[in-house]
C-alpha cells in the first residue's frame, strides 16, 4: 500500500506550481502527522480502558501506540523541517502554529519513558502511565486548538489543500494517508508480537532455570509486563 502510495507520489501527482518537486514531501509529512496525532489519541483511549479494566493488555497497547507515535512524530519533525527549509528558507519557523504545537506535543510525549522508568512498582507504573496517556491525549487537540487560534494561518492547511486541489493530488494524498495508517498498525502489531515473544521466552527460561534468578532475568525495562 505504501509502495503504491510512493509510486503515485512520484509518477502521478503533479508538481506544485510554486513549490515544485519539494511539495511531494507533503505526501509523507502530512499523513505521518495525522497518523501520529491519531495514535496519541488512541493511546489515551487505551489508557482509559486500562484504568477501567485493570488488564495489562490495554496498558501494553497504550505503550506500543505511544512508542510508534513518537517515532512517527520524529519523522514529522524531520520532514517538516526539510519542507520548511525548502519552501520558507528556515529549518524552523516560530510563527507556525502547526509546527510549534507539534513540537510541544512531541516534548510532552518524550517524558513518557522517564516517567515509566522512574516508577519502580509495576502496577503503579502502568496505572500512572495510563493517567499520563489520558492527560496527554486530551492535551493534543486542546493544544492544537489553542496554538492555532494564536497565530497566522500561513501553514498550508490540509483541509483547504485537499478540497481546492486537483483530483490527482487528493487521490494520492488519501492513498498515502491510508498507507501510513496501515504502516502504523502493522508496526504496532509487530512490536506487540515481539513483546509477547520476549515475555514467553523469558517465562520459559525462568522455568528452565527453576525460578532461581527471577529478578536478574527481568532486566531493566520500562515496558509493561504481561
Amino acid at each position: 500500500m505504501l509502495t503504491l502510495a510512493f509510486a503515485l507520489v512520484f509518477f502521478y501527482a503533479p508538481n506544485d506550481a510554486d513549490q515544485g518537486f519539494i511539495f511531494k514531501i507533503f505526501y509523507v509529512h502530512v499523513p505521518l502527522a495525522i497518523v501520529a496525532l491519531v495514535g496519541f489519541v488512541v493511546a489515551a483511549v487505551f489508557g482509559a480502558l486500562h484504568l477501567r479494566s485493570q488488564e495489562s493488555k490495554w496498558d501494553m497497547r497504550s505503550y506500543v501506540t505511544i512508542h510508534i507515535s513518537v517515532i512517527f512524530a520524529v519523522g514529522v519533525l524531520v520532514t517538516g523541517s526539510i519542507w520548511a527549509r525548502a519552501s520558507w528558507g528556515h529549518w524552523f519557523v516560530w510563527d507556525e502554529p502547526m509546527l510549534v504545537s507539534f513540537l510541544i506535543v512531541f516534548l510532552l510525549y518524550a517524558t513518557y519513558w522517564p516517567l515509566r522508568f522512574s516508577i519502580e512498582d509495576k502496577e503503579k507504573q502502568s496505572r500512572y502511565a495510563s493517567v499520563f496517556a489520558i492527560v496527554a491525549g486530551a492535551f493534543v487537540p486542546l493544544n492544537f486548538a489553542a496554538v492555532r487560534m494564536a497565530e497566522s494561518f500561513t501553514h498550508p492547511q490540509t483541509a483547504t489543500t485537499t478540497t481546492s486541489a486537483p483530483a490527482s493530488v487528493t487521490l494520492t494524498f488519501l492513498v498515502a494517508l491510508a498507507g501510513m495508517a496501515l504502516l502504523f498498525v502493522t508496526l504496532c502489531k509487530y512490536e506487540m508480537a515481539s513483546k509477547h515473544a520476549t515475555f514467553r521466552l523469558r517465562a520459559l527460561r525462568r522455568r528452565l532455570a527453576g525460578d532461581e534468578d527471577e529478578l536478574s532475568m527481568t532486566g531493566r525495562s520500562a515496558a509493561p509486563q504481561l
Partner: peptide, 14 residues
C-alpha cells in the same frame, strides 16, 4: 524534580 518540569511545561504552554 526532573519529571515535574518536563511534564508540566508542555502542558502549561497554552
Amino acid at each position: 524534580d526532573l519529571i515535574v518540569p518536563l511534564i508540566a511545561l508542555p502542558l502549561l504552554v497554552p
